[in-house]
Simulated scan of single mutants.
Amino acid sequence: MTETALVHQFNNGIKVYEKHLTDAQKARYQKHNLHEPLEEEIFLKIINSIPEGGCYLNIGAAIGYYALLAKQQSPSLDIHAFEPLETHRNYFRENILLNTFSEGDFHIYAEGISSSSSSQDFVESSYGSKIALGFNSTRSLTARTKLGLRRLAKRLLISLKLRKKEKTVKINTTTIDAFSEHLGKPVDLCQMDIQGLEIEALTGASQAMESGKVKVFIIGTHGLFCHQKVIEILSSFDYSIEFEDFTPSDQPDGIVVARKR
């Protein structure tokens, strides 16, 4: 990265290189110079309530915005960030140095979070990158039935089209349950933005949700069905829905915030 590279600084002081941003993002920041104003307000209240030395899990970390903001607000926080897109992991590392942190301040993982620990197709499409699910999904038959055959067939068709249009690579996946077991301590906040795979990720988090190893979730939802299903799943594991909005202003994703009772 050259010294003359252009830098975008948000109102909260976080800096990223402009080359990391899309034109749509830059246009949005002209209106409100925060990545997601409403979600960030909620995020900061939760982060600042976590005791010293607490744990933050960032799933779909992208270029590191929320992980950097968490470290800015709470330097002692133990931060674990999952980002399977190599380009974004590299951008994240550039932004760590730009914000005068050390890469050792963060645990960055190349795996994707899914319903099982396996190898899966991953469609590389900038901020729209996602695990490509088809009929080989590990989701249970009951869950598939709830989706409906027409919905599942449509998803498969979209997945096949994406694979033709975008670069697809194999990535390793793990689950929230497996990560939680390996971590060996509670996760104070799990924030997730994984482009419509929220249900898949929660399918692999049943033990962590049942035991309360994840205390609070902030989940970006993609589509009304997904939004409603996320609320249903979290409620079934005795999480209190503290906030939910399917169409919040000034950000592209829905929001569900849930806390273990």
Rank of each mutant, 00 (worst) to 15 (best):
T173I: 01
H20C: 03
F82L: 03
L183G: 05
V7W: 06
I131A: 05
Q195N: 08
L44R: 08
R259G: 00
N136C: 09
Q191F: 14
R28K: 15
A24N: 13
K185P: 05
I218R: 05
T138D: 14
K260C: 03
Y56L: 07
L157Y: 15
R155C: 04
H107G: 06
I131L: 05
P248N: 15
D250W: 08
P84V: 05
S74F: 08
N48I: 01
C226V: 13
V123E: 04
N33P: 11
T203H: 06
F225G: 11
D238P: 00
L157I: 15
P37A: 04
D245A: 15
T175I: 05
S180F: 02
K15S: 13
L141C: 11
T173M: 03
K26P: 10
Q195Y: 05
V230W: 07
D238T: 09
S206C: 06
N172G: 14
L234C: 08
A153W: 15
M1V: 10
L149K: 10
I50Q: 01
K185H: 05
T22P: 07
Q25K: 04
Y17W: 02
N172S: 15
S102P: 09
L189H: 04
L38M: 10
A62Q: 13
E232Y: 06
E124Y: 03
D250M: 11
I231T: 06
V123Y: 00
P37K: 00
L149W: 11
I50S: 00
S140W: 08
L34K: 04
E244K: 11
I108G: 10
L202E: 06
T2W: 05
H80V: 07
R89W: 00
S118T: 12
L189Q: 02
Y91D: 06
T221M: 06
R93G: 11
T247Y: 15
D177F: 00
I241Q: 07
E111P: 03
S116A: 12
S49T: 09
V216F: 01
A24C: 11
A61L: 04
A178H: 13
E41T: 15
I46R: 06
L97K: 10
Q72R: 10
F101H: 15
M192E: 14
R155W: 12
H35E: 11
S116F: 08
N95Q: 00
H107I: 06
V256L: 08
Q228F: 07
D188N: 09
E111V: 03
A201K: 04
V257K: 03
A70N: 07
A205G: 00
E36K: 02
K146T: 13
E111I: 01
E39R: 01
E166H: 14
N95L: 04
N136D: 14
N48R: 15
E52I: 12
C226N: 15
S116Y: 05
E198G: 00
A201E: 06
S211L: 11
E18R: 05
H227N: 09
E18G: 07
K146Y: 14
Y66V: 02
R93W: 08
G112P: 04
S236E: 09
D253V: 02
S117A: 15
N90G: 08
H227A: 05
H182S: 13
L85E: 12
G204R: 02
R150I: 15
S211F: 06
L183I: 02
L68H: 01
D23T: 13
L160Q: 10
D253F: 01
A205V: 01
M209Q: 10
I255N: 03
N95I: 05
